[in-house]
Nucleic acid binder design. Sequence first.
DNA 1: ACCTGAACACCGTTCAAGT
DNA 2: ACCTGAACACCGTTCAAGT
Lengths: 198, 198
Amino acid sequence: MPTPDRTSLTEIVAAGTAILEAGGLDRLTMQAVAERVGVRAPSLYKRVRSRDHLIALIAEQTLHDLTEQLEAAAGLPGSDPRENLRAVARAFRSFARDRPDSYGLVFSQPREIANPSEALLAFASKPVLDVAAALVGPDDALEAARTVTAWATGFIFLELGGRFRLGGDVERAFDFGVDLLADGLQAASKSHPEPVAR
Amino acid sequence: MPTPDRTSLTEIVAAGTAILEAGGLDRLTMQAVAERVGVRAPSLYKRVRSRDHLIALIAEQTLHDLTEQLEAAAGLPGSDPRENLRAVARAFRSFARDRPDSYGLVFSQPREIANPSEALLAFASKPVLDVAAALVGPDDALEAARTVTAWATGFIFLELGGRFRLGGDVERAFDFGVDLLADGLQAASKSHPEPVAR
DNA sequence: ACCTGAACACCGTTCAAGT
DNA sequence: ACCTGAACACCGTTCAAGT
């Protein structure tokens, strides 16, 4: 006779995320997750292949949440592309500050563990890709988006990891970086002066 | 009566690095390190406070090695600063490709674990700082160096983590990024047209 | 002073037995 | 069909006992 479900995959992922954000990856044990969802550790394996699999699921959920923030930040197609770049970069950064451990999971877990689906990746890339295309034109949009994403993820990593320790104003360095990218991308777009309106 | 030393801190760190590079962080167990240096696991605690401490030591050693590569890549003070930036960026990237797990340690371990000394950090920052200063002038050198470092570490992370999956040519994206930064920094230096020669 | 075996607490994971 | 206790292999770490 079947037992009624005492938890769900959604609940498990949510519990894992909460534990991760409260205490870091070391505290994310199967036992802690089980306790939080009101079940014994072995039962988790009915919904999750392994701890690594759970980590991958949390990373995917986090990437999804991040994408939502980026989309909300990116302005409408008509608005000033430089201001849009600023807004997207700031959204990136404030998300990472809000949820540093989840964010760290998305970008620093090895490929074998956290490997988001093709579809989710395309979805997540769109806001940055759009902003980049508006600045630099369609031909270099992918390269421009990769440059922006690389800079943003790197900056955030260095900041969260406390690697900016030579003094100076980190805020100023952030603005300096955004402006440099915005100026550079706009200058690089001279061969495509007309924004594509299609 | 004292027992003759059967290993050393240097040997332990080297063994840990080798294990890390061969099998990733998960395989870096105290037992594996002990076995490699010819000792039992508890003996390691005579030279190393904890596994996390050993990880921190490996990260420091790696940062030291990386710095050497960056220094070798950075040209003499007189040479073309744009070419120097290219060379430093390439050195960064090829080091990360050679030793991805060690590199990952340096930049993605939380502050509480891997926290390199002030002196080592200053030493490591110098090559990029010099290149940046040559391009942008002294006033914005720190911000410029942070922008370059952020882009490079981010790009490498995304590449190593297999996050560039939207097609396109990753090589071209790398060149695009370097050129954008070089052009942007040079343009930003217009208020300091004379390179500082001192 | 360094090294060791034994022990402890704690993991992730498996599995037979329950309902 | 889901849940559980018991068990297994394997961690990091401590410590008293050896030399």
